[in-house]
Write a protein that binds this DNA or RNA. Structure first.
Lengths: 258, 258
DNA sequence: CGCACCCTTTCCGCCTGACGGAAACGCCCT
DNA sequence: AGGGCGTTTCCGTCAGGCGGAAAGGGTGCG
């Protein structure tokens, strides 16, 4: 029986299937887990894993389990989508952090999801469940809604049409309310999102324009403890200055790169 | 003739060959470049690239060239070697940055090379040629020498045996001098490296102990402008406090993870 | 305007090297 | 010792990858 016919998994596909089993919940896996998750035969999984390891794309822990290797991290860390953005944004994020000592987050949109690209946090910042490299539905977070508000219509409709998940009792799940929020975001630029993802946090978010054409390709956000929510108001101005700075910097780089 | 026989490139190998052509000097490549660099036939390269792209591991720019995709970045960003370290170190790096406003760098050793894992830099910090995700010979940088000093003998001998590259007129290339430096590092912990990689920078570096056994698995460094070199002295204490904090944090996490 | 060059994409027949079942190995726990 | 589980090795079969070649597309030059 083997692949059951219509599986359509090519050799390259197998490699990626194997790599894809490593995520934030499972940074480390055993061979049989990998075989199980991918549906590959153990012997096949074994060979693929061994090959990847010989390349440094996977590494083996003392206990025999596997995890993503430094070599793959190196290659992927050059990903322009994140690298260019990070580079331009970091100094501004630093300034913001220094002024606020809160979590400063940078994210991009990928389809109808949000991917966190960079985060600055210090000892005094609140603990967050969002980690760099993780995805969330755009509609679920303040930063995501900012991205959504500036995304092509088609995406907005797609997201508004789908049922929205309620993470907390305060999460906006009504499409009409959300649509109104998107309008508000387009008018005011900065958006304050109150306990949408977690009961204990409030986020302030603003759009970053990437490239000279000026499309909104990223969002910058500050996350504060919900009990200090009044802080959020005062963060609008500095946040706005930061996103302008980043957008300008990105524009300058794009121009000189031509 | 095709692969010339002794090529020994398996399917998984081809995928990695293709991915490996993307580095910091070439974040973006055309199909024919990829074929050229890997030695694959264009048609083969085309198929592999297309498959990778269908998975989101590669993405295509408007001009038709290819680059590493967000999906691959996501997977690789979970790499434990960097992720765990980053997580524990960032708050301390933030504090250091705030106290100094200089470049704060975090690196690990991979064989006889140094890989930069994280960096904090603000508007006021000096420009550096070292980027996150890039490699340097361990002997070339202050952070690298700290890692080398605490590495197994075999690596030290291997590095000392090889000819050392001089990046600036001040770069130490004499094995005897270097050996003396390694001794000094083991005694003093903090090491000041004077214009070894670039004429215009001085670095202060210290070892980070990863895991409970206490092996030195990373190094933390501060890079300042060479003209402000006297600053370096004053940075030893705060740097030392930071690496102690990070080491302790890593130890705590390793313990609770068991 | 058309030709020439280069890069990309598609097609296809040959044959290699990937596939997975099975058996051997090693480890831990009982 | 024995059983159970996860890993590693082996090997015969055959699907799917391979690359040469030709078509397609875009750009710049004569």
């Amino acid at each position: 029986m083997s692949g059951m016919g219509a599986n359509r998994v090519t050799a390259a596909g197998k490699v990626l299937q194997v790599l894809a089993v490593f995520d934030r919940e499972h940074p480390s896996r055993t061979l049989s887990e990998i075989a199980q998750c991918t549906g590959l035969a153990v012997s096949t999984a074994h060979r693929v894993v061994a090959e990847l390891a010989s390349w440094g794309a996977l590494e083996r822990a003392e206990d025999g389990s596997w995890h993503v290797g430094l070599r793959l991290w190196e290659i992927a860390s050059g990903c322009p989508r994140t690298q260019i953005l990070r580079d331009a944004a970091l100094p501004f994020m630093q300034d913001l952090y220094e002024a606020t000592h809160e979590n400063i987050q940078l994210a991009v949109r990928e389809g109808t999801e949000l991917v966190f690209v960079e985060r600055i946090a210090g000892h005094r910042s609140v603990e967050l469940l969002t980690m760099v490299g993780t995805r969330f539905p755009v509609a679920s977070t303040g930063m995501g809604r900012v991205l959504l508000a500036h995304a092509p219509r088609e995406f907005q409709e797609e997201v508004l049409a789908a049922p929205l998940r309620a993470w907390t009792p305060h999460t906006v799940t009504d499409p009409r309310t959300l649509r109104a929020q998107l309008d508000l975001i387009r008018r005011e630029q900065v958006f304050v999102s109150d306990r949408q993802l977690s009961e204990s946090t409030v986020a302030v978010a603003a759009p970053v324009r990437t490239g000279r054409a000026g499309p909104v390709g990223a969002a910058l956000g500050i996350v504060v403890a919900a009990r200090g929510a009044e802080r959020a108001r005062g963060l609008r101005e500095p946040l706005l200055r930061a996103v302008h700075g980043i957008s300008e910097e990105l524009g300058r780089r794009a121009r000189t790169a031509l």
